[in-house]
């Protein structure tokens, strides 16, 4: 058994340790907010935080996550409250999502960026966000970030 700490709760999972964290989150724990897009660390739809750092969960073996603190989109703010993290509120205000599939990963990446850099430049935003959004929400992602940081 592997002990996983996800969104502040401890879980015992019996998955093969080589299983990517992504599939344990989705299929074993029912945390389906984290999305599968490519499985090869290109699209970043599966971005979660591991010990506070944004990581692509499709390429993190669950065995290597034992004892680490994992945050998913469901844990970014209390679900019962709707969505109260500043990035989530900004996303609602600027009506960023279209299909929304990539947005869990996008929001986790943006929230991580803003944790460490209160006022990122456009170049820093571009560099931090490798997420693929096929709907083309990039202009609104940038506009929402600009609004949050007062640019």
């Amino acid at each position: 058994m592997i002990t996983l700490k996800v969104n502040g709760t401890s879980y015992q999972v019996s998955s093969d340790p080589s299983t990517p964290l992504l599939w344990v989150l989705r299929d074993e724990l029912g945390l389906t907010g984290t999305k599968y897009g490519c499985g090869v660390e290109i699209c970043a739809a599966c971005t979660v935080w591991i010990d506070g750092s944004p990581e692509k969960s499709c390429d993190e073996n669950v065995g290597s996550c034992a004892g680490k603190s994992i945050t998913t989109i469901e844990g970014l703010s209390p679900l019962a409250g709707g969505a109260t993290h500043p990035v989530q509120l900004a996303w609602i205000e600027s009506q960023v999502p279209q299909c929304g599939y990539c947005q869990s990963g996008m929001i986790m990446a943006v929230a991580a960026l803003l944790k460490g850099n209160k006022k990122p430049t456009d170049a820093q935003i571009d560099s931090a966000l490798s997420n693929i959004c096929a709907c083309g929400t990039y202009p609104r992602v940038r506009a929402a970030i600009h609004k949050m940081i007062g640019v």
Binding site: L31, T32, G33, T34, K35, T72, I73, E74, L76, S77, L79, G82, A83, Q88, W91, I92, Q95, V96, P97, G100, Y101, Q103, S104, I107
Partner: peptide, 12 residues
């Protein structure tokens, strides 16, 4: 639907 798509609760 945007509210559901910023907190992972939208069911695809």
């Amino acid at each position: 639907d945007v509210k559901l798509k910023v907190n992972g609760s939208a069911v695809f």
